[in-house]
Amino acid sequence: MQLLTKLKLSSYLFLLILVSFSHCKKSSSSGEDLAALLPLLNLASGLNFCPKSPLPSEILIATTVVSASANVSGFSDSNKAVNGICGSGELVGSLDVYALDITGPGATMVLSWGGKTVKNVSGDDFIVYDNSFRISDDTNTYAMDPSVIQVSIDGTNFCGFNPSYSGASVNLMDSWTRFGGLRPVYYNMTTKPFSNEDLFVNTGGSFLLGGGDGFDLNNLDENDPNDINCNTTLANDIKATGFKFLKITSAANVDNPNTPGSRFPWPPGSYNGSDIDGVVARKLQ
């Protein structure tokens, strides 16, 4: 109940529905039931006004879906991953997302900036936006969609950030290091706009002003065991020249090097993988 009183929604009934369904992977209902509720939810919450059209020109969002094959009912429109950022804050997940599968070919998607290059600058170079939200008064406990992030110059050979899971708990943010899909999204192009540079302002620890998970190309790790086509030369080339393609994979579809023979865990009760709201670069060329 304390969580409910903090959410600024128009009615108690709608609040119960939204908390139950806003994080699309955490549902005991069928995908068809959820899909039927989406128009009502969007209309009542005002999310139908986000994203803006046309997109703000200064926001350097990934604009092109290179590949995507998931088909999660109600969240199968891959354009949702490139049509703008529609975060709902600390306590509610956005519905304007494209949902990946938990495992299999549909657990991965590749985005690009339409041929442009994301440059390596000081600090975080890009931000991945999902729809995580806090589920406890403990500020470290979230409903999360851990995703493995990799980047590439040619769209074939990818390097990543050697993500690590401590094994403490799938809902403790501190358990996950160098993953996407961990932090809430505060940025909303309609209701809470920021400049592109504002989005990269660090507000303490690893949290950013607009939320999401930031990645610094200087942290690429050629020793990541899941990057079979990455090596020191390629990682250094990406650091020096930037990248054109970004791959996002549900963590449950990636081998966990700390537990040979098994993959990263996935939050129980989830019927789909990572939910992608968008990716923003700091500088393009």
Rank of each mutant, 00 (worst) to 15 (best):
L284N: 10
K247F: 03
N131L: 08
Q285H: 02
Y142A: 10
S20W: 05
C86E: 10
I248F: 10
N256G: 12
S166D: 02
A168N: 08
D96L: 05
V170S: 05
P51Y: 01
V92R: 09
K283S: 15
Q2V: 05
L34C: 14
S152C: 04
P260L: 00
I59S: 13
P146M: 00
P267N: 00
N229Y: 04
V118I: 12
I149D: 01
D124M: 13
T63C: 07
S73M: 07
S69M: 05
S152I: 02
L100V: 08
V121T: 15
G31H: 04
S76K: 13
V148H: 06
R178A: 12
L55S: 13
N229W: 00
I127L: 14
I17D: 08
N226W: 10
L16D: 03
T156R: 00
N226F: 11
A240K: 15
W113V: 11
L234Q: 11
F133S: 06
S76I: 06
L18H: 07
P105Y: 03
T259E: 12
S78C: 07
V128K: 01
L199V: 11
S147F: 05
P184Q: 01
G261T: 00
S78P: 13
V118K: 10
V97N: 02
L3H: 11
L91E: 02
I17T: 07
N231L: 07
V110G: 09
N223T: 15
L209H: 09
F179E: 00
S45I: 02
L182N: 03
N162S: 09
L217I: 09
K80T: 07
S22L: 03
S94E: 01
F133K: 10
P265Y: 02
I61E: 15
D124K: 15
S29P: 02
G212W: 01
S122R: 05
S169N: 13
I248M: 10
R263W: 01
I135L: 08
G104H: 11
K192G: 07
I153E: 13
S147Y: 07
T103M: 11
C86T: 09
D255S: 15
L60W: 06
V92H: 03
A35I: 08
W266P: 06
F245V: 02
V82M: 03
N272L: 11
P260C: 01
D124T: 14
N229P: 05
P225V: 13
T177R: 00
N131C: 11
S45Y: 00
P268E: 12
N83A: 13
V185R: 09
E197V: 13
S169D: 14
S22P: 01
I248V: 12
A81M: 08
N48P: 00
T259Q: 12
S27T: 15
W113N: 10
N42M: 11
P193V: 02
I102V: 14
F245I: 01
A251D: 05
S76M: 07
L199W: 12
P193W: 00
M1A: 03
L41I: 13
G212T: 09
S88D: 01
N272K: 13
S29H: 06
